[in-house]
Amino acid sequence: MKNLITTFCILFISLSLFSQEVIYKEKKNITYTLRTDNYSQERCKVDIYYPTNKKDFTTLIWFHGGGLTGGNKEVPDFLKKKGIAVLGVEYRLSPQVKVADIIQDAADAVKWTFGHITEYGGSTQKIVIGGYSAGAYLSLMLGLNKNYLANRDISTDALLGIISFSGQAITHFTARKEKGLTEFQPIIDELAPLFWVRKDAPRILLITGDRELEMVGRYEENAYLKRMLGLVGHVDVKHLELDGYDHGMTYPAYPLLLKELENWTKK
């Protein structure tokens, strides 16, 4: 009898653990733009990877890298099966469109997420924008210049936070190229996250590679962004430098991203 009871207990525990397993689904190539031209219809797509048996989950809107001239939407493998939803965003590229247009695409993707994430079980109170390199730049522009989302009836206050993997804080080099400048001619204008530093911006996590190994000035730009945010009174910005890693620093950064998301949802 004792052995039978033990067997039933083990079976019950096993079934309970199995029932608690989070199940994920991925839906691809969802159009988020209202523009009807062929190029917008081709590029302005999202893939959403989300838990199907968990409610009010955190959603990370993830913008891909590629210098704003290349790249495709992605849901990073390391971020799968981690209890969150990831929305991989594709956007139009230079030189077919201007950098200012690409930022508008990114804002449209955020608007789509706020309008639809509850249909998948997510919470509009737990939306984070982030990305790698050019995608990080887009995230910083949307989070610091509040006008992009305000024009879509969304307050940046509604964002849980911003996560930037090696993003540009000065004017993006592709935007400088549009002005006839090289990547070695830094400027800070309205297309620079640094131009929009403000006390009331969302919480921010900046991660870069080693200052000696990163792309031109990338560590220093982020360090300066953190410094300037602090000087204007922003109290929740963190900058992490990954010693020994160059611009391709995504793997060591992903676990740090997940840890920060966990901390943010506890606050």
Rank of each mutant, 00 (worst) to 15 (best):
Asn3Gly: 04
Thr6Glu: 01
Thr7Ile: 03
Phe8Asp: 04
Ile10His: 03
Ile13Met: 14
Ile13Tyr: 15
Ser14Ile: 14
Ser16Val: 04
Val22Trp: 11
Glu26Arg: 12
Lys28Pro: 09
Ile30Trp: 06
Ile30Gln: 03
Thr33His: 12
Arg35Met: 11
Glu42Ala: 05
Pro51Tyr: 11
Thr52Cys: 14
Lys54Phe: 03
Lys73His: 08
Lys82Pro: 01
Gly88Tyr: 12
Val89Cys: 07
Arg92His: 07
Val97Lys: 12
Ala100Trp: 00
Ala107Gln: 01
Lys111Leu: 12
Gln125Cys: 00
Ile129Ala: 11
Gly130Met: 09
Gly131Ala: 07
Tyr132Lys: 07
Ser133Ala: 11
Tyr137Thr: 11
Ser139Asp: 01
Ser139Cys: 08
Met141Gly: 15
Gly143Pro: 05
Asn147Ser: 05
Asp153Ser: 13
Asp157Gln: 14
Gly161Val: 05
Ala169Ser: 15
His172Thr: 05
His172Gln: 08
Phe173Pro: 14
Arg176Phe: 04
Lys177Cys: 00
Phe184Ala: 06
Pro186Gly: 00
Asp189Tyr: 05
Leu191Pro: 02
Trp196Ala: 08
Arg198Thr: 02
Asp200Trp: 05
Arg203Ala: 13
Ile204Trp: 01
Leu206Tyr: 00
Leu206Asn: 06
Gly209Met: 07
Leu213Thr: 07
Met215Thr: 03
Glu220Gln: 15
Glu221Thr: 06
Asn222Gly: 13
Leu229His: 06
Gly230Gln: 10
His234Lys: 09
Tyr245Val: 00
Ala253Arg: 10
Leu257Trp: 13
Glu260Asp: 04
Glu260Val: 00
